[in-house]
Design a protein around this nucleic acid. Sequence first.
DNA 1: ATATGTGCAAATGGTTTGCAGTGAG
DNA 2: CTCACTGCAAACCATTTGCACATAT
Lengths: 145, 145
Amino acid sequence: MPDSYRRLGQMIKSLRGSGRRITPQRLAVLKILAASKDHPGVEMIYRQVKKDFPTTSLATVYKTVTLLRELQEVLELGFADQGSRYDGNRPSPHPHVICTKCGSIVDSQFSQMKELAREMTQETGFEITHHRLDFFGLCPKCRSS
Amino acid sequence: MPDSYRRLGQMIKSLRGSGRRITPQRLAVLKILAASKDHPGVEMIYRQVKKDFPTTSLATVYKTVTLLRELQEVLELGFADQGSRYDGNRPSPHPHVICTKCGSIVDSQFSQMKELAREMTQETGFEITHHRLDFFGLCPKCRSS
DNA sequence: ATATGTGCAAATGGTTTGCAGTGAG
DNA sequence: CTCACTGCAAACCATTTGCACATAT
């Protein structure tokens, strides 16, 4: 997966560039975020990291993802009624499709958000900085069961 | 405001229709939701209701808005990092524009979501049931200050 | 050497819940 | 007269924070 390697490198560069250190625990979190396409939550990352570093704490995972979010190296999908999920492959806002039954999240290719944002500025006078678009429904698997 | 009257009537009908009772506290919440265009949060509703019914509890407000959400008489805008906001004027999903500085929320007229949802079904195989589209940025007032 | 990171436990804050008493229908 | 609703306090749960110790650079 050359793509996830590039992302991992970019994350490390960002951290180093802002004076942060690359600890083993942190690196483990970065690798998971750079590689996984299923938008893991903190708990899932935590479980994975503990396989290699059993003493890792949940707080450390939280601190790392928060850091990456601030550096815009990860896209956080926060939900009001459940834990946040993270997209480490595409850190810039893009639409997601979310299964309300099994919780799976998939990326969408739809890319006309820039235009929409411009329309919104026209309509409302806001200076738009970012956006969020989620579709909810049943994934193919859950549809047929 | 004949429009908010219609909404209020609809809310009451929904509640009655599902075997619920119209208490004074509840009615006060309904009125606020039907009338306000600024997407109030629970705390704001609570403060308003207490003016007329000082003994009202926050829990009652929560229970009422949850009920209305379930009956689809109110659109809940949940956020991961702050309290939810409620739209009692347009209960079906529609885009919102949110000021990241002052927290104001305005509705948008953009209405091509149906088409987009169809595209998403094509692209992902999901059966889309609803969606959420938020734009974030600075409102005109906050832009110039 | 020296800040930054870790891990633990306690705190936070929005929301929910259990339950005894109240009141809408 | 009955069952849903209210109000209070306690419980919940994801996330954050304080702090002593450890460690990347």
